[in-house]
């Protein structure tokens, strides 16, 4: 569905004095039917990549085929087959919701009658029927988002790009938007390409996570693969007696997939914690506990810790994904 090769985009600012390489030689292949989350800190090149793949911005170099069309050579073919829900509100403030949907249908070559029919289908589908004759200024954030998604779906695209679809929404609206996205996908088998900075969304919803940083892909796989390969599980043991710490570390070293971290006592608690990196916390926990018992270590608390995608990013770059970078 998407094949990008060495896709690059450089912006020149301040009359050519300053060159910003937003995207540097990005390669990407996306199979039809995938739900892919495109993840990265602010300024990583997510939006720029999305704008190139959606033909809004020509690449400085490199090429990409999207939904069978070349983004530079045949942008119209790409535009006919893809949908794009941007971060901003797609419906204009002074236009009624239904009018915008009809206009959008006509923009894709539908007759007026067909565009009206399709608008009504989508109004029902996204539960917007009662809001059809209102202007977006009178809608809530979640309702506007649904209008945006409806506008992106008018021509039933094979591939839908969503830029931060749930940003700025309250938890209830976020859940609602996700429900629609997932239902849509189930019904139509559409390929979904979305950016998000909610890590848990990428984690739970996406089948494939692509992490970008400084204009390049730095990781690509399922959330579980990335976590297992790049961050890994961990077992945290709270010891009853500080004097057991040395023995506990000896046992931990036998299980650890990486050097164990006998971290000093966290402030405020009296007892030390032993952190053991393991390939699979769930299966290692009983064995570790049995071994500790055998060595006479009294364990007060035991916890298997799964890594987050933020841990993956941290492992790759030494920075946290949630740190804001003041670029762009």
């Amino acid at each position: 569905m998407i094949h990008a090769r060495k896709l690059s985009r450089t912006f020149t600012r301040k009359r050519g004095k300053e060159r910003v390489e937003a995207v540097r030689g990005l390669d990407l292949d996306v199979e039809a039917g995938t739900l892919l989350a495109f993840l990265g800190p602010n300024g990583a090149g997510k939006s720029t990549t999305l704008r190139m793949l959606t033909t809004l911005l020509p690449p400085t170099s490199g090429s990409a085929t999207v939904a069978g069309g070349d983004i530079a050579g045949d942008p119209s073919a790409v535009r006919r087959r893809i949908g794009y829900v941007s971060q901003k509100n797609a419906a204009s403030d002074h236009h009624r919701v239904r009018d915008e949907l009809v206009a959008q249908g006509k923009a894709y070559g539908m007759t007026r009658a067909r565009a009206k029919e399709r608008a009504d289908e989508l109004l029902d589908r996204l539960e917007l029927r009662e809001l059809a004759d209102r202007t977006p200024t009178t809608l809530s954030g979640g309702q506007r988002r649904r209008v945006d998604i409806a506008l992106g779906l008018v021509h039933a695209p094979e591939l839908l790009f969503l830029d931060e679809p749930s940003t700025g929404l309250d938890p209830h609206s976020r859940a609602e938007v996700w429900e629609f996205i997932l239902r849509l996908r189930e019904e139509s088998g559409m390929t979904l390409f979305l950016t998000t900075h909610y890590l848990e969304e990428a984690d739970t919803m996406a089948e494939r996570v692509v992490i970008v940083d400084r204009g390049r892909t730095i990781a690509d796989g399922t959330a579980d693969e990335l976590k297992a390969e790049l961050a890994g599980d961990r077992i945290d043991l709270g010891l009853r007696d500080t004097s057991d710490a040395a023995r506990a570390n000896g046992v931990a070293a036998r299980f650890a997939s990486a050097p164990a971290d006998p971290s000093p006592t966290p402030s405020g608690t009296a007892d030390p914690t032993v952190r053991i990196p393991v390939p699979n916390a769930d299966s290692a926990l009983p064995e570790v506990l049995a071994a500790m018992e055998g060595a006479g270590v009294k364990v007060a608390t035991a916890r298997g810790v799964r890594p987050t995608l933020d841990d993956v990013f941290l492992a790759l770059t030494g920075r946290s994904l949630t740190e804001e970078e003041p670029t762009e």
Partner: peptide, 9 residues
């Protein structure tokens, strides 16, 4: 806003 972008795609 985003309306122009929506028409440009």
């Amino acid at each position: 806003g985003g309306a122009m972008e929506r028409m440009l795609v």
